[in-house]
Design a binder for these strands. Structure first.
Lengths: 141, 141
DNA sequence: CAATCAAACTGTAATCAATACAAGAATAAA
DNA sequence: TTTATTCTTGTATTGATTACAGTTTGATTG
């Protein structure tokens, strides 16, 4: 996996946050499953390894790691928040047929707008929607 | 207001959808209030004009008009879907302090990615987050 | 003008992701 | 060991959205 634990621990200790067993497992799961899972998917998967795990812990962990900049929440639509550990600049494409979310590279730095002079921009999100090649081949069109 | 009723009615009649009183009022509200309101805000505001209005009708209307391409749902975060009638290409900036959503111009057509060859792109969304000038001036920083 | 039918509207009930909260472990410090 | 603080857990609650069934509206037909 490509996790930078040094950066992570430094970031967390700066906030007096311990890297507990549960939190580490959530991070590991996100690192190993780059499918943008929901909180519930993470919970169900980890519940097998950690039978005592609580869904509240998963939500708390995702929130804390999000504030520390280690995890990013993706809210495209459908009232389902998904999570991504990869913080490198990329956009997200959601297939409206199968629901899969694909990453794609895009240069966020070059995205500027004169309308935002005086605004402090902390985060940029790019979401595309449509049909993925796999679903396109199924319908024939 | 800048509503194109001809295009609207054509689009709706193509789908055998009538432009009822309630639906027209929702459209009018969105045209007159470019603040990206939630479904509930629309409901509360129109309830005064139409005391019998049901919240379900507001949701149904927003869904139907969305499918007809007349209204766009904006889901940045916070489990609150907002709605926008302006379909011209622009991005949305959400102030994390006051919650206001600002429009800003951006060239969506130039946004491409080689990773999406073979994908059928139907919609592009650009969401920025940060602090707006008004809130920046309040904190002094 | 009834009669008929489909679409539109309404209100209540249900869903479900997310949060609040309080009590119980774990961990570190003294 | 005591103490304090953080972390975890489970339950209860929230709140936006949807499902559904009954009612109303409005157009069409005879």
């Amino acid at each position: 996996m490509g996790l930078s634990f040094d950066k992570l621990k430094k970031e967390l200790s700066k906030r007096n946050i311990a890297l507990s067993h549960q939190r580490l497992k959530v991070l590991e799961y996100l690192a190993d499953n780059r499918c943008h899972p929901t909180a519930d998917q993470i919970y169900v998967a980890l519940k097998r390894q950690i039978p005592t795990l609580s869904k509240t812990t998963v939500y708390n962990t995702l929130k804390i790691l999000g504030e520390a900049g280690m995890v990013k929440a993706i809210t495209i639509e459908d009232n389902e928040t998904r999570y991504d550990i990869d913080c490198k600049d990329h956009g997200h494409f959601k297939c409206e047929s199968c629901g899969t979310i694909y990453d794609f590279s895009i240069d966020l730095d070059s995205m500027k707008s004169g309308d935002l002079n005086g605004f402090k921009i902390r985060d940029k999100d790019v979401y595309f929607k449509g049909i993925c090649p796999s679903c396109l081949s199924l319908t024939g069109s």
